[in-house]
Design a protein around this nucleic acid. Structure first.
Length: 554
RNA sequence: UGGCCUAUAGUAUAAUGGUAGUACAACAGGUUUUGGUCCUGUCUGUCUUGGUUCGAAUCCAGGUAGGCCAACCA
């Protein structure tokens, strides 16, 4: 009954290439620049590149595009590797563009010798000006006339460190009147007397993206070099350089990057959020980074599922963050341990309950047919959620109210007999009676109640802090919103509840476990927790149709 | 106003000249000891104008709209 899943346009290209014998196997690569942490948009690219290799029996290299030493750091290299592995992918080779610096230098010499590159002494302003505009052809300056010998000599001296930053560049001699601005004698090498995270001080000239990326692809025999749409104009130059150098013909294909509602997806902006302390760090659970989502409790399988669901195409898109949350819930529903935790307590005294404690057995996960059970203490004094009681219930409200009955999850049906208030009229306690014959799993009372509440025995409760996260921005399309993106930060994206009351089973916990606090949402232990203080992150809320109902009426 | 890319429900994504489908969202109902899950149903779509064709979302031409390109960033 296997329903054939349709192919995306890149899979179609690959299947055609394979069928026609253009390639016998495919090689892809994931090429991050180590200048920031990976975000969910990178996850899309990772799933695509690694997924393709898995599907077609090829391999994927991890190649760091580390050609700009001033922005790149080892910390980023480490985080990137961790994120890819956590997502569940293994690279064939861990490579660096900087590994190819010597070869890239030789490629540059080859171009010079073919009369296709020259050293230019112009300032960047002059170069920009001479480039013209999309409607006005560029003009070549006198440096383009230098002899091959002079160019070789100058380029050698550039490498030797005879010149200061910005004093000279190596340019390709391509086409100054091309409608494609990237063909107007693009810069191949620039001088940067900067320390490189891997090559140290060995080099003071560094290749530009256009003279590193395609060449690295070629060196690695990458068959399908997949990047995002904004690189489309680079493809002509990508092909031109490969052709002039006469090296393995890698091909570039472009797909639309991921955009998501209520978030930002650019390393530059994410870096700003970190540097300006709008968040606690790259792995702040509100960030769109993979590490942030991991800390928040999102599962790797959920992220992969999400990337699969959004598809691959060439049109600009803005994905509803609700789809990501759907994927997260779908995974967690099957795996999370159920626990009862009261956030805003309201005391309930069960006046006719005389035992000191009764341990009731409740399933850890009702979705799991082989679920285990834990014992939960039930006693005379418990907490329920303040929200679960109303003195004057609205229509369709089926939680507790005076004279009303509800079931306490896993325990008994109780009836509310009396409401106790303080001097200011606040409800401080409920006096209830329970129906002994209504015990969960052994209910002979014949009474049906609509509401089931979570609860915690006061004497047995353990305490924890809970961090409730909301979207980081309060506008749907942050990139399109007026003004600076930081103007749209949601000031209420983090709400901390200092003390919540949990059933004792939650004392047994670990960082890897995922929990569903019944009727509250999915939670995971945060790394900030200590022996004395438990801290839980809210991964995502449960779908709440009652809240929606209430909202509709207002 | 030079070139390139794109256009299918609210959002994404299929249909590769032959019944416009799927997911999320929304809405209605059923089940339920989580107002969760699960199940059922409903709603909404081929940017536009021509052309080719027995037949066009698909091919062609014009238009319109959106995006990208003039960093010693990637």
């Amino acid at each position: 009954m296997s329903e054939e899943k349709s192919l995306n346009f890149i899979e179609e290209i690959i299947e055609k290439d394979l069928a026609e014998g253009k390639h016998t196997t495919i090689t892809t690569r994931f090429p991050p620049e180590p200048n920031g942490y990976l975000h969910i948009g990178h996850a899309k690219s990772i799933c695509l590149n690694f997924g393709l290799a898995i599907k077609y029996g090829g391999k994927t290299n991890l190649r760091f595009d580390d050609t700009n030493p001033v922005t790149e750091e080892t910390e980023y290299v480490e985080s990137i590797k961790e994120d890819i592995q956590w997502l569940g992918f293994n690279w064939a080779n861990e490579l660096y563009a900087s590994d190819y610096f010597e070869q890239l230098y030789a490629f540059a010499e080859k171009l010079i010798n073919k009369g296709l590159a020259y050293v230019d002494d112009s300032t960047s302003e002059e170069i920009a000006q001479q480039k013209g505009s999309p409607t006005v052809p560029g003009i070549r300056n006198k440096y383009a006339e230098r002899s091959i010998a002079e160019n070789i000599q100058l380029f050698t001296e550039m490498r030797q460190g005879k010149y200061a930053d910005g004093e000279k560049v190596l340019r390709a001699k391509a086409d100054m009147s091309s409608p494609n601005m990237h063909m107007r004698d693009p810069i191949l090498y620039r001088i940067k007397h900067a320390h490189h995270h891997r090559t140290g001080d060995k080099w003071c000239i560094y290749p530009m993206y256009d003279f590193a990326h395609g060449q690295s692809d070629s060196i690695e025999n990458i068959t399908h070099s997949i990047c995002t749409l904004e690189f489309i104009p680079h493809r002509e130059l990508y092909n031109w350089l490969i052709e002039q150098l006469d090296i393995f013909p890698s091909h570039q294909y472009e797909f639309a990057r991921l955009n998501m509602t209520y978030t930002v997806m650019s390393k530059r902006k994410l870096l700003q959020l970190v540097n300006e302390k709008h968040v606690s760090g790259w792995d702040d659970p509100r960030m769109s980074t993979i590490s942030g989502m991991r800390r928040r409790g999102y599962g790797a399988a959920a992220l992969r599922d999400f990337c699969d669901k959004i598809g691959i195409a060439k049109r600009e898109n803005l994905i509803d963050i609700g789809l990501l949350e759907f994927c997260v819930r779908e995974e967690l529903n099957k795996t999370a341990l159920r626990r009862m935790v009261v956030f805003a307590p309201l005391k309930m005294t069960i006046t006719n309950f005389d035992k000191e404690v009764e341990w009731v057995s409740i399933e850890d996960n009702p979705e799991d047919p082989n679920t285990t059970h834990r014992q939960v203490p039930f006693s005379k004094e418990i907490y329920i959620e303040q929200d679960d009681f109303m003195e004057v219930p609205p229509k369709k409200y089926f939680r507790l109210f005076p004279g009303g009955k509800v079931r306490l999850k896993g325990a008994y049906i109780i009836e509310c007999n009396e409401v106790i208030k303080d001097d200011e009229g606040n409800i401080v306690e409920l006096k209830c009676t329970y129906l002994p014959e209504s015990k969960s799993g052994n209910d002979t009372s014949g009474i049906h109640v609509k509401g089931t509440l979570h609860w915690v025995s006061i004497a047995h409760a353990i305490h924890a802090e809970v961090r409730l996260y909301d979207r980081l921005f309060h506008v749907e399309n942050v990139a399109d919103a007026e003004g600076d993106f930081k103007d749209h930060i949601n000031p209420n994206s983090l709400e901390i509840v200092e003390k919540v009351y949990a059933e004792p089973a939650l004392a047994n916990n670990n960082l890897a476990e995922r929990y569903q606090f019944l009727r509250k949402g999915y939670f995971c232990l945060d790394k900030d927790s200590t022996d004395n203080k438990l801290i839980f992150n809210r991964t995502v809320t449960l779908k709440d149709t009652w809240a929606k109902e209430v909202k509709k009426k207002n």
